[in-house]
């Protein structure tokens, strides 16, 4: 081990690994308490208390749940395709984590501030569907298969409108880099123009994460838990972790695209004393709360209604909006001036 080797490879590698470890640690912690928050919020909205027994105010509940899932036996159905069956949950969880590499939590504070950050996010989230399809197929169970079919078509359908929403934002900011998207100057009319897209995006991420009211892939009243029906213990835990990490990721993505990331709200200078990452975290928590709020408020959609919303309402609307936004940008002479 020459010192040169240590300097060029070892220390940077260790630094990166440390960075990754820190991000994963934070995410897992937030994720664990997100499940707790979900039960508390749902409880409050339904005038109950939620978990109260384990620890003060039930604060140790997620940890107890984790230990429980870890210590249970993993059951693999005898007719299952074993390798695919086991890879599916790992893939789901891994994909939910790798996407965090490009999220800038504060100015310059991203593991990899790459040129095509938003495309990377979109690519990773579009791959998420594989974990579900593989799980449904490998389980060799009708319910699981139906659930994964539903999930796959749902995610593919909503990705279309999500993609177009992202296009409108990109038209306004003129960069695929996440930090540039956050810092790009957006006059008030541009923000008004993007507001409908925010709503479309919020609804689409509900569908993309298979969350209520679009949780048909799980639909326990019809298909008894959908693609996860054959999973138990750690394999189930990984799906669970993946789902919640994905929700946090989507919230962070909304924050980056629409809510101004680490910048204080409305760029009020008086609020600059709060560190940037706090704003980022607060905004993300706000969107995360929206997930729970929606779950507590809306009844589950029917499958045809879901598809109708995606293809017949969101797709035409976002398509038209791409035209509207680009037209307005040309009219206002505000096209991102990178290309001179």
């Amino acid at each position: 081990m020459t010192p040169e080797f240590m300097d060029t490879y070892f220390w940077p590698l260790l630094f990166i690994l440390g960075h990754i470890g820190a991000i994963i640690g934070c995410i897992l912690l937030v994720m664990a308490y997100y499940t707790y928050a979900e039960r508390k919020v749902l409880g409050a909205m339904q005038r109950r208390q939620g978990p109260m027994t384990v620890g003060p105010f039930g604060l140790l509940q997620p940890i107890a749940d984790g230990i429980k899932l870890l210590s249970k036996e993993t059951i693999i159905p005898s007719q299952a395709s074993k390798v695919v069956f086991l890879i599916a949950p790992m893939l789901t969880f891994a994909l939910a984590l790798v996407a965090w590499a490009v999220i800038p939590i504060d100015a310059g504070l991203a593991l990899a501030d790459i040129n095509v950050g938003i495309l990377y996010l979109f690519a990773i989230s579009s791959m998420g569907v594989y974990g579900i399809i593989m799980a449904g197929w490998a389980s060799n169970s009708k319910y699981a298969f139906l659930g994964s079919m539903r999930s796959a078509s749902q995610m593919v359908s909503y990705e279309v409108s999500m993609g177009l929403v992202i296009v409108t934002v990109l038209l306004c900011v003129g960069s695929l880099n996440l930090s540039d998207i956050i810092t790009a100057y957006r006059p008030w009319w541009m923000q008004v123009l993007l507001l409908p897209m925010l709503f479309v995006f919020l609804i689409s991420i509900l569908a993309e994460c298979n969350r209520a009211p679009f949780d048909l892939p799980e639909g326990e009243s019809e298909i008894t838990g959908g693609f996860m029906v054959e999973y138990s213990a750690m394999t189930f835990a990984l799906f669970f972790l993946g789902e919640y990490t994905n929700m946090i990721l989507m919230s962070a993505m909304t924050t980056v695209l629409f809510l101004g990331g680490w910048l204080p709200p409305f760029n009020i200078e008086a609020l600059d004393f709060v560190p940037g990452f706090m704003w980022f975290v607060l905004k993300t928590f706000g969107v995360m709360f929206f997930f729970l709020w929606a779950r507590a408020t809306f009844p589950r959609y029917r499958y045809d209604q879901l598809m109708r919303l995606g293809w017949k309402i969101f797709l035409p609307f976002t398509l038209i909006w791409v035209l509207v936004v680009s037209g307005t940008l040309i009219y206002m002479d505000a096209l991102p001036g990178q290309l001179e």
């Binding site: 095509v116 495309l119 690519a123 579009s126 791959m127 569907v129 593919v156 695929l176």
Partner: peptide
């Protein structure tokens, strides 16, 4: 990198799913 991402989005994320 652009081609790489588009490859993943289009081929992996959409075509191969179908």
């Amino acid at each position: 990198e652009f081609v790489a991402m588009i490859l993943v989005i289009v081929y992996v994320g959409a075509v191969a799913v179908l």
